[in-house]
């Protein structure tokens, strides 16, 4: 299992992938928004999203787990 973590503090602006989706390295999973900047959080390796830990509008801190991949 591989965790995808937030690289900045901000709110979840958009969820681009869902639980059960197959993703490839570099595919966006969610887009975070903070201080007028949108930062996509993408998969660091290929896999299936087994769990999505956030929903749109949630606030996350740097280092929080966004999703789990397998």
């Amino acid at each position: 299992m591989k965790q995808v973590v937030a690289n900045m503090a901000g709110s979840v602006w958009k969820i681009v992938a869902n639980e059960g989706d197959q993703v490839s390295k570099g595919d966006d999973i969610v887009i975070l928004e903070s201080m007028k900047m949108e930062i996509p959080i993408s998969a660091e390796e290929d896999g299936t999203i087994t769990s999505l830990k956030v929903k749109e509008g949630d606030f996350v801190n740097e280092g929080d787990v966004i999703a789990e991949l397998e």
């Binding site: 690289n7 900045m8 503090a9 901000g10 903070s34 201080m35 900047m37 930062i39 740097e62």
Partner: peptide
């Protein structure tokens, strides 16, 4: 208020 290397926002 941002990371000095990535320039990503840093609220707090």
């Amino acid at each position: 208020a941002e990371d000095p290397n990535t320039f990503f926002p840093s609220p707090g």
